[in-house]
Amino acid sequence: KYKEAKESFQRFLENHEKMTSTTRYKKAEQMFGEMEVWNAISERDRLEIYEDVL
């Protein structure tokens, strides 16, 4: 289930129109921090996936 959450988060970042190569992690956290997809995984994993996607 956790792996699915990580994959969902990656797809979310890859497909969200507001995500560009210039979007900083903290800005994304402000935009999406309340969303379930954002909070479903640990911050360490979130940051790792974020850096992989951008």
Rank of each mutant, 00 (worst) to 15 (best):
E4G: 07
V53A: 04
E51S: 13
V53M: 03
R24K: 14
R46F: 02
E48Q: 15
L13R: 03
R11W: 07
F9V: 02
Q10W: 09
K18W: 10
A40F: 02
F9N: 07
A28H: 01
D45E: 05
W38G: 11
R46Y: 01
V37W: 15
V37P: 12
K3D: 00
V53N: 15
K18I: 03
T20Y: 05
E48S: 13
K1R: 07
E51T: 09
K26H: 11
R24W: 06
D52V: 09
K27C: 14
D45I: 00
N39Q: 10
W38H: 00
F32M: 02
E34C: 05
S8C: 14
V37L: 08
M35D: 08
T20L: 14
T23N: 01
N39P: 00
T20D: 07
Y2I: 12
R24A: 15
E43T: 06
L13W: 01
H16L: 01
A40K: 10
F32I: 08
L47C: 06
K27Q: 10
E51R: 12
N39T: 07
D45K: 00
E36G: 04
T22C: 12
I49C: 07
S8W: 02
E29G: 01
A5Y: 08
T23Q: 05
I41H: 06
I49E: 06
E14L: 14
A28S: 02
I49Y: 01
E43Y: 00
L54F: 09
E4F: 13
T23A: 06
Y2R: 03
M19W: 05
Y25S: 05
D52S: 14
W38L: 05
T22N: 11
Y2V: 05
K3S: 04
A40S: 12
E14S: 11
E43D: 10
S8M: 12
T22E: 13
K6N: 03
M35Q: 11
E14A: 13
Q30E: 15
H16N: 13
T20M: 06
M31D: 04
S42C: 14
A28W: 00
E51D: 09
S42Q: 08
V53F: 13
T23P: 05
Y2W: 01
A40C: 09
M35N: 06
Q30H: 12
E4Y: 07
E14K: 07
E7A: 12
D45T: 07
E36L: 06
K6R: 13
Y2D: 11
Y25D: 08
R46G: 05
G33D: 01
E34N: 15
V53C: 14
W38Q: 12
E36D: 13
R24L: 15
R11K: 14
Y2K: 09
K1G: 02
S42E: 14
